[in-house]
């Protein structure tokens, strides 16, 4: 594996870490969604990098997988955005407050007073 590929892999890992962190920590649903997209992109970047590790032409299978992955990611994101809009319109909320475990470090009273 060449150095540049290692770099790509490293970048993908960092992105994945950031994405997972964001999903778990972010409160606003839009942020959560962006974080998920980040994670998705990390996985796809990883796949693309894998496709290029040989010496010859890039592996077509990973290309196909990545294209499919992008399409799925777009549909999931658009569905999530539509849901978010509907949620905001109906309840005027942009957070999922009724989480089973209220996030540590935030205002504990908000959860307690509900």
């Amino acid at each position: 594996m060449t150095a540049s590929l290692t770099l790509y892999m490293l970048a993908a890992s960092v992105l994945a870490g950031l994405g997972i962190y964001g999903v778990l920590i972010a409160g606003h649903l839009l942020r959560k969604l962006l974080a998920l997209n980040l994670l998705g992109m990390a996985v796809l970047l990883m796949l693309i990098t894998l496709g290029a590790r040989g010496t010859g032409a890039p592996d077509p299978v990973t290309q196909a997988m990545v294209i499919t992955g992008i399409i799925i990611s777009i549909s999931a994101t658009s569905l999530a955005l539509a849901l978010l809009l509907a949620l905001q319109r109906v309840t005027d909320e942009t957070h999922l407050d009724a989480e089973p475990l209220p996030p540590v470090g935030e205002d504990g009273d908000a959860a307690g007073s509900r």
């Binding site: 997972i20 999903v23 649903l29 959560k32 969604l33 998920l36 994670l39 998705g40 999931a76 569905l79 999530a80 849901l83 978010l84 509907a86 949620l87 109906v90 309840t91 909320e93 999922l96 009724a98």
Partner: peptide
């Protein structure tokens, strides 16, 4: 488009994507 269902769907979607 009921509030409960929207919340449930949103939570499900996020976890499903993850």
């Amino acid at each position: 488009r009921k509030a409960d269902a929207l919340r449930a769907a949103m939570r499900y979607l996020l976890l499903a994507m993850l």
